[in-house]
Design a protein around this nucleic acid. Structure first.
Length: 581
DNA sequence: GCCGTTTTCGGCCCGACTGTTTTCAGTCG
């Protein structure tokens, strides 16, 4: 059983405990343990005989370690089995409906024996819900709408899409006079790969308490609103036609930092931060950090003030997952995270010679405009016929043209000849070694899965790594971000071998194609892998996706020194890569 | 169920909004 599955079972147990009205703090322990397990880079399955190491994980004590061992050895645990005798697994899905919390789920179960969505829908339509305490006509109507939406679309949005909506909505809000700053908070600011809903924080003179009502009305009247969900004194919630929920909060400037900190989260980071505040005789809310004894404001206007007042270094949003960042900030050992401006080159892109849209020169000029000092042109090889992939002869001719463009540019930017070569089912490559020898950058990628098992896929990649011409392993897992598909490859084994051989591992910056998670990246660093981040651009504007890739590197706690394509020049880079045979 | 510069017991984060209410519980973030 992998860590994700363990975390899910612990989280489900927490939900069942909630329905069972268990001790809230016990519930929180299960939630916290689930989060901690999900963040581990080592598979807990390897620690089944090392309970001490399990208990070294913050949030996991004696009882939880026993639960995890039970899950790993039997596939379930006593408490979970006990709860499943009383309740139904389908009730967990009810919790995902808006307005349905654990108390309501328990109520419809005890009063109406309703345990799933179909049953709940029937009960609401039959008017049975309205008879229950604290549930009226309005609640039932809202619930039916919620069920409809849930069935239609219950997915999250990719970060680049969410960013686009944030930009559009921000532009419309900014039209109101007296609005100065709009910041997306929440998981978008933390740089998660996907975003569940959008939190926009707004401030400026129009957001001061005595005048804010007019600005609230402006937001509530935005033309792109599909359904208005809530409108309060300084908050407006609505959904767009695509069902993306947007929460807009208008805040006075004096408390903007506290609000930004609060709404950026994550939830677990905030809980830990507040506990720290209380230990210091302070209390932290979305309005301010206050001294408990006399309610004097200690910090509120900026996030930096708040962290410093809690004896912490400033913590970048990408690290705020309660994954050790508070301890590091207290000890002044937070890493100096890599930034977009540190990236000097992009080593994976396509041109119109295969399935790209633009020419070698156009890609080079666009890269130059973005301040890059070197790029590699890596078009597809012949096995990918649908991409017009190159055979040996075309690949050699392409190298010549790339070198000509490189010479034409006179050193303003270096353009390195390369290829994205396909790893065939048996692990061999689909071009001759003599062709690969002419390339500076050989990216080897798996593009088709056939019907191979994980063992076969892993063996295939491991064999490809042994080819001495391979310098970069391209999108190693083939993972799809939104569907969170299981890995087809034993990523731990692959990263280990790549590190031994000096093959760099690619993190694909494109949100659509990203295949290493932040956890994979942490694992790569642990194993001592050389890491490159590149865009896999198929058109000039896709070079801009580098920012999303860098965000993922930051979430993995990586620094400039951890990433190969921060090296200043093409010569330095090639010198740091696996030597050519 | 976890945790400890208040350490083996007694704590454990904060506030707004909604719908159903006549003062509040439940949900959400």
């Amino acid at each position: 059983m992998d860590n994700i599955s363990i975390a899910r079972l612990l989280d489900e147990t927490a939900a069942l405990l909630e329905i069972d009205s268990a001790d809230p703090f016990r519930i929180r322990s299960y939630r916290r343990a689930a989060e901690a397990v999900e963040q581990q880079t080592t598979q807990l399955a390897t620690l089944v005989n090392e309970p001490k190491q399990l208990m070294a994980i913050p949030g996991i004590g004696k009882g939880m370690a026993a639960n995890i061992v039970a899950l790993l050895t039997t596939g379930t645990m006593p408490l979970r089995e006990e709860l499943l005798l009383k309740y139904r697994p389908s009730m967990l899905e009810l919790l995902r409906l808006p307005g349905m919390g654990p108390k309501s789920v328990a109520l419809v179960w005890s009063a109406l024996e309703v345990s799933d969505i179909d049953g709940l829908e029937a009960a609401a339509k039959a008017g049975q819900l309205a008879k229950l305490p604290r549930m009226g006509e309005k609640f039932a109507a809202k619930l039916l709408k919620g069920i409809e939406d849930y069935r239609k679309n219950s997915s999250r949005f990719r970060i680049d899409k969410a960013q686009g909506f944030a930009d559009t909505i921000s532009g419309m809000i900014r039209e109101f006079p007296g609005i100065e700053v709009i910041t997306p908070a929440g998981s978008l600011r933390r740089g998660r790969e996907t975003v569940g809903d959008l939190d926009l924080l707004v401030t400026g003179p129009a957001c001061e308490p005595d005048v804010v009502a007019a600005a609230v009305e402006h937001v509530a009247g935005l033309p792109l609103i599909d359904k208005l969900l809530a409108k309060g004194q300084n908050k407006v919630s609505f959904t767009l036609r695509n069902n993306l929920q947007v929460d807009v909060r208008l805040l006075p400037r004096a408390s903007y930092g506290a609000a930004l900190q609060y709404f950026t989260g994550s939830k677990m980071h905030n809980v830990a931060l507040r506990q720290r505040a209380i230990k210091r005789g302070l209390t932290l809310s979305e309005y301010a950090l206050l001294r408990l004894e006399d309610n004097v404001i200690v910090a509120a206007a900026s996030e930096e003030d708040i962290y410093h007042a809690l004896d912490l270094d400033y913590i970048p949003p990408e690290l705020r997952e309660n994954g050790g960042e508070l301890e590091a900030a207290a000890a002044h050992t937070l890493p100096v995270l890599i930034e977009l401006g540190d990236i000097r080159g992009d080593l994976h892109m396509h041109t119109n010679e295969s399935d790209g849209r633009d020419s070698i020169l156009a890609m080079a000029e666009a890269a130059m405009a973005r301040g890059l000092k070197y790029i590699a042109i890596t078009d597809h090889s012949k096995a990918l016929a649908m991409t017009n992939g190159l055979d040996d002869a075309r690949a050699r001719a392409h190298v010549k043209r790339i070198r000509e463009v490189d010479a034409e540019l006179g050193g303003k930017i270096r353009v390195l000849p390369g290829i994205e070569v396909d790893i065939l089912a048996d692990g061999s490559l689909d071009l001759e070694d003599a062709t690969l020898a002419e390339m500076d950058i050989v990216v080897a990628s798996v593009h088709t899965h056939f019907n191979q098992t994980q063992e076969e896929m892993t063996a295939r990649v491991l064999r490809a790594l042994e080819n001495p011409h391979v310098r970069i392993l391209g999108h190693p897992t083939g993972r799809k971000v939104l569907s969170r598909e299981a890995y087809a490859i034993d990523i731990d084994a692959v990263l280990r071998r790549a590190a031994e051989l000096g093959v760099a591992v690619e993190h694909n910056a494109s949100p659509a194609r990203a295949d290493l998670t932040d956890l994979n990246l942490r694992l790569a660093k642990q194993h001592g892998c050389r890491i490159v981040v590149d865009t896999d651009a198929h058109a000039t504007e896709e070079l801009g996706q580098m920012r999303y890739g860098v965000t993922q590197l930051r979430r993995a706690w990586l620094t400039k020194a951890d990433v190969l394509n921060t090296l200043e020049s093409a010569e330095e880079l090639l010198g740091a890569m696996r030597p050519k045979p």
